[in-house]
Simulated assay, not measured.
Amino acid sequence: MRRSPRHLAGLVTALALVAGTAAATVPAQAADNPYERGPDPTESSIEASRGSFAVSQTRVSSLVVTGFGGGTIYYPTDTSQGTFGAVAISPGFTADQSSIAWIGPRLASQGFVVFTIDTITRYDQPASRGDQLLAALDYLTQRSSVRTRIDTSRLGVAGHSMGGGGTLEAANDRPALQAAVPLAPWDLNKNFSGVRVPTFIIGGEADTVAPVSSHSQPFYSTLPGTLDKAYMELDNASHFFPNLPNTTMAKYMISWFKRFIDDDTRYDQFLCPVPNDSDISEYRSTCPY
């Protein structure tokens, strides 16, 4: 039987309404990542000194904590988007949190709660610094004034020098962590084959304190080949590149934490394929992630 144009038009409309109703019954978030925070990233947004979130900070005295030396918490003031992932960061040998303070608000403004810590003594070794990073995360998620802003299932660690070695130690000890970023790491332990945490090692080509040939590169090589991992060497950078604002370091650190703490695949574009950046002398990875 031949259908009239009006009848066909009505049939099309009815089918469209049915399809629309069916689609409406599927939660809108089902196809989205509930952990995404902030606008779509661009090269300029991850290179900026501040991201889209306003940031506040609170000082934590060593007198009210156990297992580490206190520190400063930087956190987004916006609570409308839900909870955030969190990162604890350790300074290096003989240094205090002031040596890495610039990283705190820079990361927090991209949508993380960040805890730059002091160690119990300035001379603590990497294994101790790893324990202190984990103690800081426990304080941050269980006792701190910002604990309700944090998703306790999305945590990461970072650190400079012996704090970078401590980052690897912490990742080795707590496989539930989501990401680790050691910066110019130093550690007498050269075997991290037990690490199950996505790890991005950043070394300095001209580092004479923790030469990449005897620290960063062996660390990376012993991480499992099946692990999501990357190694970046900054062109002509000394051991102390994390102590001053460093755009190249920050942009890839942000991208790694976004990708693995927030499961935010919008940041894949900055990590895979291998970045073409004149400030990078070497880059290795197990990409795609």
Rank of each mutant, 00 (worst) to 15 (best):
I103G: 00
E169F: 14
N276A: 15
Y289R: 06
D207N: 07
T42D: 07
T226I: 05
P105Y: 13
T265M: 04
F84T: 01
Y267N: 02
P218Y: 05
S216V: 03
S144H: 06
Q81P: 01
V87W: 01
S52D: 11
L168Y: 13
F68T: 07
L8T: 14
A23M: 09
F200Q: 03
R266T: 00
Y74V: 11
L15N: 10
F260M: 04
A101F: 04
P182N: 09
D235N: 12
P175Y: 08
G104R: 01
R259D: 07
S153T: 15
V113A: 04
L140F: 11
P218V: 04
S56D: 15
D277Q: 09
P198E: 09
A88R: 00
L271H: 11
A16L: 15
K190C: 02
I261F: 02
Y220S: 02
V195A: 03
S49E: 13
H239M: 06
E205A: 14
T199P: 12
R143T: 10
G204C: 11
S216Q: 13
L188G: 08
I201T: 05
P273W: 07
Q29D: 14
P275K: 10
L134Y: 07
D96P: 01
P126S: 08
A24P: 00
T152Y: 00
G71H: 02
P41Y: 00
M1L: 14
T226L: 07
A180D: 10
P175N: 14
T42S: 15
S45R: 08
P41M: 02
D262I: 09
D131S: 15
Q97F: 05
A210F: 08
S216M: 03
P91I: 10
H215Q: 15
N246K: 13
D279Y: 09
R6C: 04
R174P: 08
I280E: 03
L11I: 12
R37I: 01
M253W: 11
T247Y: 03
P5K: 11
S80Y: 05
S238L: 09
L188P: 01
D118C: 03
G70L: 03
A135N: 13
T141F: 10
I280L: 05
V18P: 03
C287K: 09
A9W: 04
D279K: 14
I100Y: 01
Q132P: 01
Y139Q: 05
S285P: 00
